[in-house]
């Protein structure tokens, strides 16, 4: 430990930040935070509605909601107590609609997570993933994934564990095409992580995500049950601003040596169902490790 050396780096970072960082405009930051927050909620709802048509059937009264559209156009008529009152009414209406949109988003994402949870609970045999020692290769053959998902898949890269090292498969050409048609799925392994790390420290999913705790149909006590009896954690998230849906399933290693991560990213076209992809990759991993 050398305090002088550490201080030197800190000083240089401080000086760089002094020069590099623009002035803070508090009013503008607050205004922009409000605008972005509202825009995000609107885009989440609109694009999730499209995705839902091909993924999870959940009754959604989008048309009715949009019909209300209390964004100021219909909210205050002429003859009210002036511009301030009209503005306040429109603001309240927007807030009410935003709350309704948030509630609907939560139900949408919960429903998606629920499909995976239900599929796991219906399995005859529990999942058991045990990481080999050291670095180990990915199962490059995506044939079983292709068969399960009904689409051609290209294996990209991977050796586990690594950072960000994952085994990843995607639709050929998907990366270069429109984001709405994007699909990729992957699996990674974080050694030395524990089940507690699944919560990212605060027990809460990130913003834009809904969390589902996925249980197993385990039978009887024993070491396996001890290791896996606690939950796998599934986060289903909507990524702004394109409403791409991310699935991220954290699975504790059976031997307790780390945590496996199974992910899927689907564009709004939902060419591949994210829940099915997570299940297929988990099955492949279960057979491999």
């Amino acid at each position: 430990m050398n305090d002088h050396d550490t201080t030197a780096l800190r000083d240089r970072l401080d000086r760089l930040a002094d020069r590099f960082t623009p002035q803070v405009d508090v009013v503008e930051l607050v205004r922009e935070a409000r605008v972005r927050n509202r825009r995000q909620r609107r885009s989440r709802l609109a694009l999730l509605a499209v995705a839902t048509a091909t993924a999870v059937v959940v009754p959604v009264g989008i048309a009715a909601l949009d019909g209300a559209a209390p964004d100021g156009r219909n909210a205050a008529g002429p003859g009210a107590d002036g511009e301030a009152r009209r503005s306040e009414t429109a603001e309240q209406a927007r807030e009410e609609r935003a709350r309704a949109e948030d509630g609907r988003l939560v139900r949408e994402l919960d429903a998606r997570g629920g499909t995976v949870a239900a599929a796991f609970e219906a399995r005859d045999t529990p999942v058991s993933l045990t990481a080999p020692a050291g670095r180990f290769p990915c199962p490059e053959d995506g044939g079983s994934l292709q068969a399960a998902l009904g689409v051609p898949l290209k294996y990209l890269a991977g050796t586990l564990p690594g950072d960000p090292g994952t085994c990843e498969w995607s639709l050929p050409g998907s990366s270069a095409g429109p984001l709405s048609e994007y699909f990729a799925t992957n699996i990674g392994f974080s050694p030395s992580w524990t089940e507690d790390d699944l919560d990212h420290g605060d027990g809460l999913p990130a913003e834009g995500c809904q969390r589902t705790v996925v249980s197993h149909s385990t039978t009887g006590p024993g070491a396996y049950h001890e290791a896996m009896g606690r939950a796998m954690v599934l986060d289903v998230c909507v990524q702004e601003p394109d409403a791409v849906v991310h699935w991220n399933l954290g699975v504790p290693d059976t031997s307790g040596s780390g945590v496996w991560w199974i992910g899927a990213t689907t564009g709004t076209d939902q060419r591949v169902d994210g829940a099915a992809a997570v299940m297929a990759v988990l099955d492949l991993a279960d057979r491999t490790w």
Binding site: L29, V30, N37, Q40, R41, E207
Partner: peptide, 25 residues
Amino acid sequence: ACLVTGDRHLGEDLLQTALAKAYGS
């Protein structure tokens, strides 16, 4: 934000993204 992104504009955008999320919750 500016230091981790290495770019003042990306840094501003990153902070704004976080503040929008913070505002929403």
